[in-house]
Design a protein around this nucleic acid. Sequence first.
DNA 1: CTTGGCACTCGGGAACACAGAGTGCTAGAC
DNA 2: GTCTAGCACTCTGTGTTCCCGAGTGCCAAG
Lengths: 339, 339
Amino acid sequence: MLDERKLAVLRAIVEDYVSTNEPVGSKALAERHNLKVSPATVRNDMAALEEEGYITQPHTSAGRVPTDKGYRLFVDRLSQVKPLSGAERRAIETFLAGAVDLDDVVTRTVRLLAQLTRQVAVVQYPTLTRSTVRHVELVPLAERRVMLVLITNTGRVEQRVIELPEVVEDTRIAHLRAVLNACLDGCGLVNVPELVSDLPERLPVEDRPVVATILSVLLETLVERHDEKIVFAGAANLAGADFSVGLRDVLEALEEQVVLMRLLGETTSDTPSALTVRIGSENAYTGLRGTSIVATGYGSGDNQLARLGVLGPTRMDYPVTMGAVRAVARYVSQILAAS
Amino acid sequence: MLDERKLAVLRAIVEDYVSTNEPVGSKALAERHNLKVSPATVRNDMAALEEEGYITQPHTSAGRVPTDKGYRLFVDRLSQVKPLSGAERRAIETFLAGAVDLDDVVTRTVRLLAQLTRQVAVVQYPTLTRSTVRHVELVPLAERRVMLVLITNTGRVEQRVIELPEVVEDTRIAHLRAVLNACLDGCGLVNVPELVSDLPERLPVEDRPVVATILSVLLETLVERHDEKIVFAGAANLAGADFSVGLRDVLEALEEQVVLMRLLGETTSDTPSALTVRIGSENAYTGLRGTSIVATGYGSGDNQLARLGVLGPTRMDYPVTMGAVRAVARYVSQILAAS
DNA sequence: CTTGGCACTCGGGAACACAGAGTGCTAGAC
DNA sequence: GTCTAGCACTCTGTGTTCCCGAGTGCCAAG
């Protein structure tokens, strides 16, 4: 059905179209890639490819353009991820190494990725799910007010001001802090609800209202931040691409945390560290026909903590983009593991 | 030179052009606003206004369009800030009231402002300059590692991991924490460097290397965050406006913290709580010809902590935009003061 | 199966005409 | 002196037409 040469033709079409952004015709194809066959033969192959739905013509008698299905085949079977150059690697390394805290790592990463791919980069903050508690801090602010600070092993810090139901002296607060830390230190965040469930009962009766208040805020913090923050950068690159139609939709999608979340989430497969690519209409969201997403998980070790990726026109250079995403993910993972 | 009626004509031109986005001609003007004079008279006035540089024609024989100078006059003398409707006020209030921490306040504010004005909203994080220290926390993480957490009265939390030059037991850390808090609690951040300058000398010799390390990180944190973070939202609204030319430039400016910073900063006047408007070419940045910025300071009480504002086409509804910016700034200030 | 030839199709650009909106100016009215 | 009416003029934007060229599909021959 699809012999070697037809595949070569498809590959050539994708490559040419990506670089020129113009429908590619049989003649130009036969010339530029030395296919050793005549334009007529190429036309026959093209007809077959069109029959199968891999390419299409914008209008009768213009060149061919890959369909989403065509890109899919290209990505799956016809291309290899292109590794970055040494210079680029070094640039990444030095750029990320300067980060001072988690916020900074994420910000730098998203900018880096945007610049590297000349597209819109999207980075999800490391989720708390797999993180563990490194420390819980209770800071007395006023007679009936404390600040709860939760520090995780990923360097994330969550804080909440808590209004207490009664006046509590600092020593009692200190005691509670010790109890909480003894109970939670080093535990996975997912286990926290379970671990604290019987805590009130193990404490003197007079402490229970206070503890209950604190715990409710603590648990709230966990679930609230469970669906995580996502940041993006490189929106300016959208204007450069000839998006024209739908630019507004794309920008709207980017600003909707929920949508963005789902898009990155959708790309999750059983092996989260693998690169996943969603092409055009494979994305559920209507506004993003015409855009592809290349994403992968990142995080220290086997712990895939979150995802990052790139969003761009379906007409993108997949090998290069995939290479950049993979490389950046690896470096960020290293940085996170080290800190 | 510019009598009452000429001013009325200018006002009418601005209003019509803002709402229709088309050059406005003498006839339509005389009809829609009951000026009680004939189109011919209006034409004479227009000629005068053009002579003075307040309006211009895109090409011979099309209507007139306000120049930046025209908008400036309009803003300064011909318009009144339009207060929000009751419903809008209530919406703002409830939307902002739900915020859980500083991050959340800022995020909600910027989204709210973008939605309210249908333009790009820009919010600067409250700067540390005028804030005071509420608490300093040292959390032992490992034998030679502590986390420094700095909590300010604005609810901001800064954290840094510190590698210590030697092993330090937890009790010593606790002691240092107490010393630091005794020294800094309630003090303005700007005073911190001075306050800690002689701290090492007041401590036992053996503590000095450790304290020096901690202090250097603390001071670093202060200066690093001194130039503050800025966030924006509503980029999608740019696509809606017929920006076309320069959209890319605008997006680039938005993603450049430094540029954005300068733009908001430029708008600072001697009374920071006043609304400031920069119109088109009044902005130094080249990419932002064609855009205006409406900004104001916000913050609790007289403490103007930071700035927020809106960026949109020069052709914007200034009275409404200014009303929204002012209202949001007030509410945010309230929220910040309360927390 | 491949190739060369050929008629056909369609999009996009150039040339052109035209209607409509708006202006500036001048001469007359209040 | 100021306003108004009338008039000739000048643009832009739009619709029409026309034509070129790139590219195709098909067919018959190698």
